[in-house]
Computed example of a mutant assay.
Amino acid sequence: MSDIIAIIVAAGQGTRAGAGAPKQYRLLGGEPVLTRTLRAFIAHPAINRILVVIGAHDKAHYEASLAPLKDTSKFLAPVVGGDTRQGSVHAGLWALRNAPPATVLIHDGARPFVSQALLSETIAAAQTYDAAIPGTPVTDTIKTIDTLGRITGTVDREALRAVQTPQAFAFAPLFAAHIRAQAEQETTFTDDAALVAWAGQPVHVFSGDANNMKLTTQSDFDAAEQRLHTPMITRVGTGFDVHAFSAGDHIWLGGVKIAHTQGVTAHSDGDVVLHALTDALLGALADGDIGSHFPPSDPKWKGAASDQFLIHAINLLRQRGGVLDHLDATVICETPKVGPHRDTIRARIAAITDLPLDCVSVKATTSERLGFTGRAEGIAAQAAATIRLPQGS
């Protein structure tokens, strides 16, 4: 049994995108949209298998989409979908029923910009919740209107989210919800989150990615083509953090708990490495510092794990269409010795940021017994982050 299988829904005809092949098979940047979508799922190491749901007459289109891919070893045989999205997902789940995965990801074939970071966040959410979906804040003012087009009210957008895919579910309750909906002839659900919520299961919403656009109309394709050719500008930011030692038996460095003869004085968990990296990212974005985003005066952050600060900065980068290229941190202290923990720290930072391990550098130095770090009164870290942002963003 595979732990995680991704079902890619690619059975629709996409008529709103205009004449020609279904939108998931139209060319984007010289290759089919579906090819770009599938490449992202192939690349993620936690996804064991991929099942594509296709239209009854689209086998040739599907095979053409696989042709540019170097590795197709993760693919199960495609299945033919239904007349609706709900029917297509049902067909995919039905095909897996005899050897079901623990977790299934449902993704639209016409969302080719899904990032490795969003896939990682989706998988992490799936391990905590039986149903979890990405959503982005709604920035436009939303009005309700009557049949004559007159405004009848304004919706509070703070409670609104624009829902995306991939959506993650424990297989068994999702499959049961589909079976029940079919039996009760409830066939109008436009996504699986709505279906499982109808079945009585809570659905958790986590932060989505503004770049994860769905291609629906010709204007979407025009914007996507422009995006593929938008020049990217490299930026570098730096960060620095320091904490005094205090009574305790451990410290946190780079998201790793390290036994020590002392702790640190801090409002959060006092992880100087993650704090410095967060500030480096915010610096590259020219978006304030860690204190402006997470004020130490706010009791919400008392004892908080610092990985959420770094994830917040990553999300800000994504919202602007940016790419994280490299992180570099230097720990400055007499004790503890960082060397024995270096690889574990690098791996943890890589996991938090969804960077390849060879794009994360962690170094350590002493201050030659000079200053507060030399007197072993505290610990410091400095960091640099290299990013790329779309020109003019």
Rank of each mutant, 00 (worst) to 15 (best):
A77Q: 14
T72M: 07
V79Y: 12
R39F: 06
I379W: 06
T230H: 06
L281P: 06
I50S: 00
I151V: 14
E377K: 12
R180D: 10
F171P: 03
F171H: 09
P100T: 09
I379T: 04
E368M: 14
L148F: 11
A162R: 12
T261C: 02
P231N: 10
D325E: 15
G208D: 08
R348E: 14
A10E: 03
V89K: 02
R235P: 05
R16P: 00
S306I: 02
E368A: 15
D279Y: 00
V138I: 05
A126L: 13
Y62T: 07
L93I: 11
L160W: 06
A77Y: 10
L160M: 13
A313K: 01
L105H: 07
A193Q: 07
T103P: 04
F240E: 10
F171C: 09
P45I: 10
D249I: 03
Q319F: 09
G291H: 14
P100H: 10
A385Q: 05
A131F: 03
G378D: 07
I345W: 06
H61E: 08
G322Q: 10
A305M: 08
A280Y: 01
K302C: 01
A60Y: 03
A64H: 10
A385D: 00
T165W: 07
P134N: 09
A385H: 02
G322D: 09
A364G: 15
G270Y: 03
L357F: 11
L285P: 06
L38N: 06
V52H: 02
D328S: 15
T187I: 05
G237F: 04
R85A: 08
L66N: 04
D298V: 03
N211V: 12
D307L: 05
Q167E: 14
V196Q: 00
A172F: 00
L69S: 01
V138W: 00
P134Y: 11
I4F: 05
G12W: 07
K59Q: 12
H57Q: 13
D220A: 01
V80I: 15
I50P: 06
A46L: 10
T344Q: 14
L38G: 05
Q86W: 11
A244C: 00
K59N: 11
